[in-house]
């Protein structure tokens, strides 16, 4: 019942955001807003595994790019596929990858999983770079429709709306998990895996669920990317900044609740959009890195922690 209420409120908030964007009417709002929303999804997805279960995933870029490249492939072989369907394909692909990775490494200490995800990002990039069908290292061009389907407006507006919808879904999932049996199981694993197992928690299965869910949402967030950038090459699809941002945002916002990644992503995402325009993109990334280090040292509970006991 409470979940239903929350969903209703989330949908209303999302509708208000979209209405506000339409009211402002500046195309840059959609363009910059899309990136912020994409980070809300990525940070929320990362937090399901990292914040709730305590397993650090450094391979965001790989899951994200898998989703993006799934769209590139679909665009080539079945260009008529609607975007939400492409997102579903990208999500499933990333979820399965997460499951496979997890199955091989999640039986070990969490550190090994983290190292494996870091290495995986390099390998998936190697594979894509060597795969000529999706453009290899040269990259691929995607021609996007000029108008949004379903309503009148630019296609960027449609991408913005789709990402807004995915935000609602991702945050809804994260919040539903938090107060559920699954969420308590995740938290038990994070606190003490050995004790969790001894309390009846099927730790391996739960970790696999978290990895698949988290990876799947990252893949879905990546799927619309080719239409947003219209030109996708491995260097941009696998950019390290995705991994850093998705770790920095939850840790800065606070990892214990769904609100943390949301706050972190909106603050940091907006800051970067402003800094990229006013200063430079490299410097704005440096700011994120420095903020991450400062927060993990000085504010281990994140911004959310300031408002709670």
């Amino acid at each position: 019942m409470r979940n239903l209420w929350f969903s209703a409120v989330a949908v209303v908030v999302a509708a208000l955001v979209f209405a506000a964007a339409r009211l402002i009417g500046n195309p840059y709002v959609y363009f910059a807003g899309y990136v912020v929303l994409q980070y809300v999804v990525l940070a929320t997805a990362w937090n399901i595994l990292g914040g709730y279960t305590g397993y650090v995933n450094f391979g965001t870029a790989a899951f994200f790019a898998l989703g993006a490249y799934a769209t590139v492939v679909l665009h080539k072989i079945a260009p008529a596929t609607p975007l939400p369907a492409m997102m579903l394909v990208g999500g499933v692909l990333s979820a399965l990858t997460g499951l496979g990775m997890g199955y091989l490494t999640l039986r070990l200490r969490g550190t090994f999983f983290s190292i494996a995800t870091l290495a995986m990002a390099v390998v998936v990039q190697t594979l894509v770079t060597n795969w000529n069908f999706v453009g290899g290292s040269r990259g691929a061009y995607i021609i996007r429709p000029s108008h949004a389907p379903l309503f009148s407006g630019d296609y960027t507006q449609y991408l913005f709306l789709v990402m807004l919808g995915l935000c609602v879904v991702a945050i809804g999932i994260a919040r539903a998990i938090e107060k559920s049996r699954l969420g308590f199981g995740f938290a038990a694993i994070r606190d003490d895996e050995h004790a969790a197992e001894a309390s009846g928690v099927p730790t391996l299965r739960l970790k696999l669920i978290a990895t698949a869910l988290s990876g799947g949402l990252m893949g879905m967030a990546g799927a619309p990317l080719p239409y947003y950038v219209t030109y996708l090459d491995p260097a941009s699809g696998f950019n390290l900044s995705y991994a850093v941002n998705t770790i920095a945002m939850p840790l800065i916002g606070g990892t214990s609740t769904w609100a943390g990644p949301l706050i972190g992503a909106v603050l940091l995402g907006t800051l970067q959009q402003v800094a990229t325009v006013t200063i430079s993109s490299a410097l704005s990334l440096l700011i994120v890195g420095v903020l991450l280090v400062i927060f993990v040292i000085a504010a281990p509970r994140g911004i959310v922690g300031w408002f709670r006991r």
């Binding site: 938290a187 038990a188 050995h194 004790a195 009846g200 214990s256």
Partner: peptide
């Protein structure tokens, strides 16, 4: 456990809730 291994971020009630949810 020989050395107590509570779930550190949870309340006592939640600590006890885990085996209720997952074992009982």
């Amino acid at each position: 456990f020989q050395l107590p291994r509570p779930f550190g971020t949870m309340t006592l009630a939640e600590n006890v809730l885990i085996p209720i949810l997952y074992a009982a």
